[in-house]
Design a protein around this nucleic acid. Structure first.
Lengths: 191, 191
DNA sequence: CGCGACGTTGATTTGCCTCAACGATTGTGG
DNA sequence: CCACAATCGTTGAGGCAAATCAACGTCGCG
């Protein structure tokens, strides 16, 4: 919980009441590797903040294949905005990739915080703008790059992930097959 | 200008001072088909709001190929968030696809509005969340669908665009070639 | 140990791209 | 008012990057 507060304090100053209110609505959870935090078909609308460990959100296609939308580590938010703002039933799942500590906040509760603390609203508005920028970059990567180039950029942008996350999940994030990724890595190793 | 005010009033109530301030910082422009509103390599940081007509933002790859990030019509914002929030020099361009009427607002000026009018901040925060949801959906489409499926979904999601925008630009949005799109359309027509 | 999860490697297939040529349409200048 | 060039869409032939399918090695763990 203090981790979230520190993370916020890093950008804005917050009152005691704000801290209390935030404390009141957050639920801290310890989750193990492989545990599903939010599953598809659930109607829960929740935001997740990562204190430690590593999570991923993914979509499971009709053919059973999983496609990773996002990875998240310490101090990252990972939420399914498709469900939160456009679908009534979740199409995504969030899974823990390691033993992780997280905070779960209900959508309605967070909305109350927005209403009462304009500073937090401003803080998040800026975060969202950066997030949009990141997502737009990802779309451009998917539109313009070859498989090998996507991997190179991923390694360059997220060196942390590259060491922690299994290759077949990185592949599912890049939109390529594990086999292709394996061949790309082999090529990179010999040069 | 009144179009932007109406668009905002549709969701929140705004004061006279707010209206005056917004008026003071917006520049209305009439642009013709093919005109570039923001070009790559510019250092301008501006938001664009569409009053009428149709625009697109795109990235020009090293090989000269253009990749469309977004189309925009009446009451849509079209801004290059990559430039606004992470790059110092623009990598994107915004072009008008028809005779259009737009409003241009400098980033710094809009930031002032945010600061002074928390209601507008909240209004935009919600817009951004929806935008994130839309972008996440687009990423999932790019990750999971075949060329034909991407086109079908595009037609379904944006029937308006399908009638106005040349096919080769739709192709550049979907990440496929104009030739492929042509073949897909042919197939759809015969069934 | 033995099983399951993960990564690798090879052989083959395929969806889409590339390249090239050709209508249709629109705009333009003589 | 008509050649013409430019732009866009279409169609065909061929090629290639990456997917698929299949088999096997390895590691960690109950």
């Amino acid at each position: 919980m203090n981790d979230l507060l520190d993370y916020i304090k890093n950008s804005i100053s917050i009152s005691d009441e704000f801290q209390d209110m935030l404390r009141a609505i957050t639920v801290e959870k310890n989750v193990v590797k492989g545990e599903i935090i939010l599953s598809e078909d659930s109607t829960k609308k929740e935001h997740v903040f990562v204190i430690s460990g590593c999570l991923r959100s993914f979509y499971k296609a009709d053919n059973g294949k999983e496609h990773t939308l996002q990875f998240a580590i310490k101090n990252w938010w990972i939420s399914d905005y498709i469900t939160l703002y456009t679908a009534d039933r979740s199409v995504m799942s969030i899974e823990s990739l390691s033993h992780s500590k997280i905070l779960v906040i209900g959508k309605d509760n967070l909305d109350k915080i927005y209403k009462e603390y304009p500073q937090f609203e401003a803080f998040q508005r800026k975060n969202f703008e950066r997030r949009i920028s990141t997502l737009q970059k990802r779309i451009l990567s998917l539109l313009t790059l070859t498989a090998a180039e996507k991997y190179d950029r991923f390694v360059n942008d997220y060196p942390v992930f590259e060491k922690v996350i299994p290759n077949y999940q990185i592949a599912s994030y890049l939109g390529i097959t594990p086999e292709s990724l394996s061949r790309i890595r082999k090529e990179r190793a010999t040069s």
